[in-house]
Amino acid sequence: MKMTIEIDCTPQEARTFLGLPDVSVLNDKLVEEMQKRMSANMAILSPDELIKNWTAFGVGAQEQFRNLMSAAVDASMGAARSK
């Protein structure tokens, strides 16, 4: 025998019926905190802030990055030659 029961209720009514806790207040707090953090981080992603951060490392960091990229290219070329 197969039975189908259809219940028409709101999510809040379903949570109450099943005995689940009401977490809407917690959800509102989490969403508010995420919005604050995203807004704070958006300022960091502005182009002028990115340039300030990148240039703050100086020439030494730029040279290290160039060396890292050169080593990666050399390694990939060596792997291609050995095949």
Score class of each variant (00 low, 15 high):
1 M>V: 06
2 K>S: 15
3 M>D: 06
3 M>E: 13
4 T>R: 09
4 T>L: 07
5 I>D: 08
5 I>R: 11
8 D>F: 03
8 D>A: 09
8 D>P: 00
8 D>K: 12
8 D>G: 01
8 D>H: 10
9 C>Q: 13
10 T>M: 04
10 T>R: 00
10 T>H: 05
10 T>L: 06
10 T>P: 00
12 Q>I: 00
12 Q>T: 03
12 Q>V: 01
13 E>C: 00
13 E>N: 10
13 E>A: 12
15 R>I: 00
15 R>H: 05
15 R>E: 07
15 R>C: 03
16 T>G: 03
16 T>D: 06
16 T>A: 14
16 T>C: 09
17 F>S: 03
17 F>Q: 04
17 F>Y: 10
18 L>N: 04
19 G>S: 02
19 G>V: 02
19 G>H: 02
19 G>Q: 00
20 L>K: 14
20 L>I: 01
21 P>E: 04
21 P>Y: 02
21 P>W: 02
21 P>H: 00
22 D>A: 02
23 V>Y: 03
23 V>H: 08
24 S>G: 04
24 S>F: 02
27 N>G: 07
27 N>L: 08
27 N>V: 06
27 N>K: 14
27 N>W: 03
27 N>T: 09
29 K>R: 15
30 L>M: 08
31 V>T: 09
31 V>Q: 07
31 V>Y: 05
32 E>N: 14
32 E>V: 03
33 E>T: 05
33 E>C: 06
33 E>W: 06
34 M>P: 01
34 M>C: 08
34 M>H: 10
34 M>N: 10
35 Q>F: 07
36 K>F: 08
36 K>C: 05
37 R>P: 02
37 R>K: 10
37 R>Q: 14
38 M>W: 09
39 S>M: 13
40 A>N: 13
41 N>Q: 05
41 N>P: 01
42 M>T: 05
43 A>Q: 09
43 A>C: 06
44 I>M: 07
45 L>T: 11
45 L>E: 15
45 L>Q: 13
46 S>Y: 06
46 S>E: 15
46 S>N: 08
46 S>D: 11
47 P>D: 13
48 D>E: 14
48 D>V: 04
50 L>A: 13
51 I>H: 10
52 K>C: 10
52 K>V: 07
53 N>R: 14
54 W>M: 07
54 W>R: 05
55 T>P: 02
56 A>R: 09
57 F>S: 13
58 G>K: 11
59 V>N: 13
60 G>W: 02
60 G>N: 01
61 A>G: 07
62 Q>F: 06
62 Q>M: 10
63 E>F: 05
63 E>H: 14
63 E>M: 11
64 Q>M: 11
64 Q>N: 12
64 Q>P: 00
65 F>L: 13
66 R>D: 02
66 R>S: 10
66 R>M: 12
66 R>W: 02
67 N>L: 14
68 L>Y: 14
69 M>L: 12
69 M>H: 06
70 S>L: 09
70 S>A: 09
70 S>H: 05
70 S>K: 07
70 S>M: 07
71 A>G: 08
72 A>Y: 12
72 A>N: 08
73 V>Y: 10
74 D>I: 01
74 D>E: 13
74 D>S: 02
77 M>L: 11
78 G>C: 09
78 G>L: 11
78 G>D: 15
79 A>Q: 06
79 A>M: 09
79 A>V: 03
80 A>K: 12
80 A>P: 00
81 R>D: 10
82 S>E: 12
82 S>W: 03
82 S>Y: 02
83 K>S: 13
83 K>R: 11
